[in-house]
Nucleic acid binder design. Sequence first.
DNA 1: CCACCTGTTATCTTATATGTAACATGTTAA
DNA 2: TTAACATGTTACATATAAGATAACAGGTGG
Lengths: 145, 145
Amino acid sequence: MKYSHRLSDAVHILTYIGATEIVEDDLSSRAIAGSINSNPSLVRRLMSSLKNAGLISSEPGRAAVSLSKSTDEITLLDVYKAIEEPDLFHVDEETNQQCPVGANIQSALHKAYDEVQQQAEVEMSKITLSDIVKDVVDGNKKALS
Amino acid sequence: MKYSHRLSDAVHILTYIGATEIVEDDLSSRAIAGSINSNPSLVRRLMSSLKNAGLISSEPGRAAVSLSKSTDEITLLDVYKAIEEPDLFHVDEETNQQCPVGANIQSALHKAYDEVQQQAEVEMSKITLSDIVKDVVDGNKKALS
DNA sequence: CCACCTGTTATCTTATATGTAACATGTTAA
DNA sequence: TTAACATGTTACATATAAGATAACAGGTGG
């Protein structure tokens, strides 16, 4: 399947912004990139998608990004839809239409994949940024104790 | 995300083998590749994985592949596990361990992804090859009427 | 004015999926 | 036994996508 961690990095960004309890004041793309061990350009590109999805607010020139909603109003599904391709699985659209199987397998697969996708999305919608932030903050507390 | 249709092609292969009602007798990798609009080598590689997973039986030299179980005993989850990487989502394992967020985001994400993965797998286990074959056969009937 | 930022685009490298070819080996029928 | 054809496996070429990185126009604020 895929080997991308875009979704993880996007959640990381949101968590960094939302975890004010344990993060210093600097919310520049450089500081966030430092936490991810990546580079500021990647962070800004992901933030661009998050901004388009209405999850964060930012302004040119000012290192002052903020969440547009509270952490318990932002779900993993919101981030997923903002960042990733919509479909977890992909149907082969080039099958042989002259073959009884090739001509009918696409719709059968779409139907099956839709059912899986729907349940995955239901589950993603149950997980909020608040949950993630809590786990991170708790993990940090435990590490310090 | 990824843009692979390995899973779709694998289901296609199994459907081709299982849909004896509408498929002619030739079960060679060449014939199956013709239905997928792909090539015999790809089909043989996927069949190799399906064979390792105990879903099909075949012998060298003979174009006589067969399902190792009945179509309602083979689930989409079986095929997924035979063919794909196990995880739908990937955690960025390179985050900065010196940062409170970077040090704790990985386990938080693993936990969240596990919940989604589990529900997706439950849903995949509900879909059988029998369902797919039925949809394909019905689609073919409808097209002929 | 200057240092720093965002937002966007472009390029490079690398990883993966797929297409394709090749080949050792097994099978079957003439 | 030979020819035709099959599987199973490996190797290589190509296309696509992710991520690293650089660059730059323009905004911000001391």
